[in-house]
């Protein structure tokens, strides 16, 4: 990283370590990344959120193993466990039992734990891929607009304004609704996931683009850019070797904060019924089913809701922690 380290309250908080290191008789240089990591390690809330995210990812990846170990599956019906009159699960708390730790669905009696775990795969996969797409688009266009200026900047900035001032959810619903069930050589869930990733990623790049453009605008006036240019560096070198490394911090922070937004976006589309197709489980889809059952079986609503809440909250907390660690001025 070429940027000089700013002296601010954050650095002062880092002082005890520096003193300890000095007491050991050895002075080491620390990179910006190491300093940030040190700060992040001290932020208990952010660390807890980070660990929770890792656990969530592990649970999602291991969903087939876990469900097999418990002897359940996300799509097996258990009609024998359903009260035939109310079509809600027998027993209290949504039919929680040893075999079905989080209970079962009304009507069909599918295992809720298995569906939540498999739903996590869909949610996280779509959110990660969509974030990757919007970050890539946002960074490339943002850096280009900020560095180049001129009419390119005008076009990109106005496009971002248009996107930010759009009824995006309506557009997304309409788009997700008009795509036929077979297109672009894909069909079924593969197509739905691709469509959702594209819609979510494509509609959320301007948030990233705007931030990156602003940062680039101020970075491009700094001496190290002048130095690189005066030594004859070409534009690609300046963009990718000089500017981009200095943008890692905001990219990391806002990607982390974009993931929960995208999880909510995907859940909203699935909730409205234009997301992933049933019977594939998704958190939003489960909440949609729960609308008809919140009176007789509130557990069925609470579990996918809690899954969304905890996941989104964990990413938000980690993002806030990362921001504090990477940019102590922005407190």
């Amino acid at each position: 990283m070429g940027a000089p380290i700013e002296v601010s309250s954050g650095e002062q908080r880092a002082a005890p370590e520096a003193v300890l290191a000095g007491a050991a008789g050895r002075i080491e240089g620390r990179s910006l990344g190491q300093i940030a990591w040190m700060r992040l390690k001290r932020d208990k809330v952010a660390m807890a959120a980070g660990i929770m995210i890792l656990v969530l990812i592990a649970l999602a990846l291991l969903a087939p193993v876990i469900t097999r170990a418990l002897g359940t599956s996300p799509n097996d019906f258990n009609s024998n466990l359903i009260d035939p009159v109310l079509s809600k699960p027998k027993g209290s708390f949504g039919g929680i039992s040893l075999e079905h730790p989080l209970g079962i669905e009304p009507i069909n009696g599918r295992d809720v734990l298995a569906r939540v775990l498999y739903g996590a795969r869909i949610s996280l996969l779509i959110a990660f891929l969509a974030t990757l797409l919007s970050v890539t688009l946002g960074v490339l266009l943002g850096v280009f607009a900020g560095y180049k200026g001129g009419w390119g900047d005008t076009v990109i900035s106005r496009t971002m304004d248009v996107f930010l001032a759009f009824p995006l959810l309506l557009f997304a619903i309409a788009l997700a609704g008009v795509i036929p069930s077979e297109a672009f050589g894909l069909s079924g869930n593969g197509l739905r996931i691709a469509v959702l990733v594209f819609i979510i990623g494509f509609f959320s790049w301007p948030y990233m683009g705007r931030i990156i453009r602003g940062q680039t605008l101020s970075l491009r006036e700094r001496e190290f850019i002048d130095a690189a240019r005066s030594m004859g560096a070409r534009t690609p070198h300046v963009l990718f070797r000089e500017l981009l490394p200095n943008l890692v911090a905001p990219i990391l922070v806002y990607s982390t904060l974009l993931i929960p937004t995208n999880i909510l976006f995907e859940a909203a589309l699935s909730f409205l019924g234009v997301g992933i197709n049933p019977p594939t489980p998704s958190w939003g889809g489960m909440l949609n089913q729960a609308i008809d059952f919140y009176r007789v079986d509130p557990m069925f609503m609470i579990i996918p809701g809690a899954a969304i809440f905890l996941t989104v909250m964990a990413f938000n907390l980690l993002g806030d922690g990362l921001r504090d660690a990477l940019d102590p001025r922005a407190r």
Partner: peptide, 21 residues
């Protein structure tokens, strides 16, 4: 922070279940 992490269709259903029902 909790508020921005809660989807409206979840809080809506919760409030319906609690207050309305």
């Amino acid at each position: 922070l909790a508020g921005v992490s809660l989807p409206i269709y979840f809080t809506g259903l919760l409030s319906l279940a609690l207050f309305a029902y």
